[in-house]
Design a protein around this nucleic acid. Structure first.
Lengths: 163, 163
DNA sequence: GTCGCTGCAAAACGTTTGCATTTAG
DNA sequence: CTAAATGCAAACGTTTTGCAGCGAC
């Protein structure tokens, strides 16, 4: 088959195009700054804080400031291309193109690793419980805090952090 | 039987005593302000914001300010008598004596109701998933955001809010 | 008397907003 | 041309902190 797996670059530019489309539909303007921010964002991976994003953005165009990054992130969230998450350390993190569409998180409090997982049983069980409690779920968030039992990898990551 | 069920007042004073014990063990000082804050806190119910707590505390002793409330809440959290929660509206909420020891939340985005629930199946499933991902859970948080399907009650609560 | 605690106000934090200027449509 | 976007700085709401004075031990 010619088409086995989308490579990451394709997915990224697809998201970028989707954002352009969103901008257009909304009657907003396509600016250089927005393109830069969106492009940089989708080329990063993981759970990105505003500070992290701004640092990378400034490497491309140092004139871009917090305000524009915040405003662009809000647009990305509104466009449903990006999700905002808060893991309780008091700052928002943004998550773009992930392999898995919806997923939950395990957060290692030793090494800081954020593991994504998805389990249909879990989703089904939640639905069942919602019905029992006369509730309709729009979205949910499940976070498991603890530590890796793969201690080797965990220690390595922990050491790397302090490096 | 003489002893059927603990009444709420007993539970409250038990928690207050537990806090005194914690203070003692830590070599901290037992002050009037701390007693007031802790007592007021445990006599409130639900998911209490700092502002809500301060308002009630000030009714007892108007001289007590934000700083002391914050500092006391941190102690309560450290003592494990209280849990800090963040539901994404940017301010912390504190939860003390709940009927259920551990529980998760359903949050209605229409009427603001926060419903607590607990399900052992859910807990077991999470454990299973953690093991599969080489992870050890210390604590977790599950929040279901959506709306009540009991529309009558929901609308009533919503109206009450706008008061 | 010591050392921790309080209360105030000031600072810090992440985030949002007002405004003059620039720029896309 | 005009309405929207930018960049800066100032404002915001929540939380933390520095410090002089107070109070528990």
């Amino acid at each position: 088959m010619a088409m086995e797996k989308q490579v990451t670059a394709d997915v990224v530019s697809e998201k970028e195009r989707d954002f352009q489309k969103f901008i257009q539909i909304r009657g907003l303007k396509s600016t250089k700054q927005r393109s830069t921010i969106v492009s940089v964002f989708f080329n990063m991976m993981g759970h990105i804080s505003v500070e992290e994003l701004l640092r990378e953005v400034k490497a491309v165009n140092p004139k871009i400031g917090y305000a524009t990054v915040y405003r662009t992130l809000h647009l990305l969230v509104e466009s449903s291309l990006v999700e905002e998450r808060r893991f309780g350390d008091g700052l928002a993190r943004y998550e773009g193109h992930s392999q898995v569409e919806h997923h939950d998180h395990m957060i290692c409090q030793e090494c800081g690793r954020i593991l994504e997982f998805f389990n249909p049983e879990l989703e089904a069980l939640q639905e069942k419980l919602a019905v029992e409690h006369h509730f309709e779920i729009h979205r949910h968030r499940l976070e498991l805090y603890g530590k890796c039992t793969d201690l080797d990898g965990c220690h390595k990551r922990k050491a790397q952090r302090k490096g």
